[in-house]
Design a protein around this nucleic acid. Structure first.
Lengths: 126, 126
DNA sequence: CCTGTATTGACAATCATTATCAATAACGCC
DNA sequence: GGCGTTATTGATAATGATTGTCAATACAGG
């Protein structure tokens, strides 16, 4: 049976507050700074749950950490500012079909893909 | 000054032999099994060099490790079999321009992107 | 061949993440 | 509301990949 705890709510909420992608460690720090007594392991578990339910997206930073972000359930990709971390959701139907056709051309059964665009957002470009 | 050592050659060669993406740890094991006395740290250093020079591509596996592969110097992406690890280079000029235009549409100065396609290759699909 | 120094390799250190496990608290049921 | 079951928590240890350290080694130019 699945239980609802204030810890899971807290993580979900904190993730929603974040402007862009955040690491589990960051979220844990933020929550502690807000007075929460939540444990680090719990943050990891909650994030894993959210990601599995489709309530959060995850991506690997080049530094090795896993970053998370709240998101809608539909399939999409991200345009991320490398300065401030804001992320814009990109619905790229054209890309989906491109990915599938490329896979087929090479005799592959398409399964999955990771597409992340990085850049500098208007605000940070000043 | 930059020096040429048999260790760097060995790593470069072993990377060339690999059919697809390999981890640093894997390469180290292979080399040791071939009788080499090369150190793990050296393998990491050699791979970092190769990646920087554009002689190798790297990507983050979902498990967290960094995987490497020999490649041409031109910009490209990969189609990777999730079963056996074979990788096919994809020159995707259409995608490059798509990425740039998407970034521009959102007021971003395009900087970079990661695009990796996964699937099951013909051989593994049997 | 000699010398200066880039490079190596064994090992310690770091960092993110996962496993462990006793204590706690949510939920269904009465 | 009270109770018992058991999912969940949190402190901490364990893991695993990667990087730093530093004395010893070996490349390259003279």
């Amino acid at each position: 049976m699945k239980r609802n705890t204030w810890q899971k709510e807290a993580v979900k909420h904190a993730l929603g507050e974040a402007t862009g992608f955040v690491s589990a460690q960051d979220l844990h720090l933020v929550l502690r700074n807000h007075g929460s007594t939540i444990g680090l392991a719990t943050v990891y578990r909650a994030l894993a749950d959210l990601a599995q339910q489709g309530d959060a997206d995850s991506l690997q930073a080049t530094s090795g950490e896993t970053l998370f972000r709240a998101c809608g359930a539909n399939h999409h990709h991200h345009l991320i500012c490398t300065e401030c971390g804001v992320a814009v959701e990109i619905a790229a139907t054209e890309i989906e079909s491109w990915a599938n056709s490329v896979a087929n051309q090479h005799g592959f059964k398409p399964a999955n893909h990771t597409i992340e665009l990085f850049g500098i957002c208007a605000k940070c470009a000043d």
